[in-house]
Nucleic acid binder design. Sequence first.
DNA 1: AAAATCTTCCAAAACGTTTCGGATTACTTT
DNA 2: AAAGTAATCCGAAACGTTTTGGAAGATTTT
Lengths: 339, 339
Amino acid sequence: MVVKLKDIAQATGKSITTVSRALNDYDDVSAETKSLVMRVAKELGYTPNTWAQRLQKQHTETIGLIIPTFGPRFSDPFFSELLAGIGNRAAQLGYDMLVSTRSPGEEERAAYQAAINGRRVDGFVLVRTRRQDERISILQEADFPFAAFGRAEERLDFPFVDEDSTYGMKLVVEHLASLGHERIACLAPPSELMFAHYRLQGFKEGLTEADLQADNSLILIGDLTQRGGYEQASKLLDLPSPPTAIAACNDLMAFGAMSAAQDRGLMVGKDIAITGFDDIPMSEFSHPSLTTLHQPLYQIGGMVCEMLIQLIRGEPLDEKYILLKPELMVRQSSGLSID
Amino acid sequence: MVVKLKDIAQATGKSITTVSRALNDYDDVSAETKSLVMRVAKELGYTPNTWAQRLQKQHTETIGLIIPTFGPRFSDPFFSELLAGIGNRAAQLGYDMLVSTRSPGEEERAAYQAAINGRRVDGFVLVRTRRQDERISILQEADFPFAAFGRAEERLDFPFVDEDSTYGMKLVVEHLASLGHERIACLAPPSELMFAHYRLQGFKEGLTEADLQADNSLILIGDLTQRGGYEQASKLLDLPSPPTAIAACNDLMAFGAMSAAQDRGLMVGKDIAITGFDDIPMSEFSHPSLTTLHQPLYQIGGMVCEMLIQLIRGEPLDEKYILLKPELMVRQSSGLSID
DNA sequence: AAAATCTTCCAAAACGTTTCGGATTACTTT
DNA sequence: AAAGTAATCCGAAACGTTTTGGAAGATTTT
């Protein structure tokens, strides 16, 4: 049988109220009673019933995270890093994390609504923001706390952490241009994703600044997976005049592109330059190692989580908008100067 | 304001009881009343308060997953695949998933105790079983439902899914031996992990069956990360007479080993053979692509989850013990015959 | 016409906790 | 000795739901 307050009350001869107040360290309970109650509670192995507590206190000490997926899975290392960052910070701050996956659309909407109305979580971490992001409007209308990794199209006001993707892609293009590349292709993410916008913008600005011609046939959209990168890069490489460099908008697609190049007998880092974005742990160990932009995903997860919890607790936010500068990690895949 | 049963009762002129029963489709409510209640509930945007429901019903429709970590993170793609499998199956069956990470020891124990006593979840999925696994005894003593991915040392009786690692490693050794390798090294996992035991056993049995000498100096323990694989493989490669093949016990270490070899100017798949275990999505796209053992992690996650939920619901289990045969995926990293 | 059976409804209790608003006792102060 | 103040304690209400055990009325059976 599970021990409840009543049992402790009986064992100590005190009332339920007093036991409760003793355990919560109220100061209208004598030191004596407190220590008695504590001792007995420990002896009996008491742990509070979470639901009763939550029903009463009206908050859950739980944050929610609904990962948007297109296929059924989210095995993207990008998410695992982020998830780890969020989860561990949450644990440190005494919060649980409720995780699920939904594909954007009716299902996702319903999941948010249910969680909000059922007060299942105290707030949400939003990841991979989209241009017209209905999640944001749902949460804002319900006046429900959330913090996001990523910005939104319209200048909606909510706390976020984001990296300056535009800046990052400019760095990459500048790097490639400085190596002598003139036909630089881009593997872009699906355009409804907010970061697709920023990265593509950076890519284009980078070309302009390097006095290079933008060629739309060299911008292909991939689904962020290795397979997608492979397929789109194959198309690029089979063009009559293929690019000499491919800037992928995430590492996974870059790996796919590397495979496509290697399958065509090209030596990545010599015959062709390939770059990524994210710097997932893998990229340091691939062959050749991947030139990419470092995002401290684990830390970012922690930051978003902390923001959210401050928001939930009604504490003032240290910073409401955080924009990080990604760092260019030059490795082998971009190679040396091509001339 | 959040809509509750009382509001619907008021709006319809029925009692709270009737409203509750109408919404739950009891058959002592007239069809008329039911549809009225349903309509009004929809109009008002009613969603039940989860905690009140749980407090009353005494179950949570939530499964727990505590990922054991050594460092602070769990960005291992192995876990993300598995997590995805568990989470999606759980969602399909109407369950939430509560995820956290703890490093084995006091912290982990406390997390389990709190979740059990606070009835925070209905059951646990246990991953990465250990030889003396206190989690199992805690759960069994509390008579708390759980299903595991992995077996345990003592023949404790609990439902599990596992792959036959011994068989898998034998396949690998056989494959390497058939290519002419005689000095085969092994990158083993920390020995307290249950699967370390099975994989090492398979490795040794494989050697015996191939009439090869086991050489303990060729068995090194790594921490399952790329970095660990890199470091341990470096030691092997710097031996006076280095191995010609390295069988790593997971893909991540295999990738690390590949880097170590490549950094020494060796061509993997030609100068040295390297194999992995798990077949994470990455391994198909690495260069060279990795010969490894395929485990359907996503499906395994789903299976364990389903077992657990059957257990929770008191339904008979389709199968209580599931042992899967991993499949050898021969790719480039093991190369061709070496003579 | 009385008794039995359905059908439809509901008041009240229960789940385990926290909190509100006193109540009691003991100790100080007048 | 009476009045005031602290220090402890506790009964009852509340959180929002489900379930128990019946009640009321309509219909059928005897």
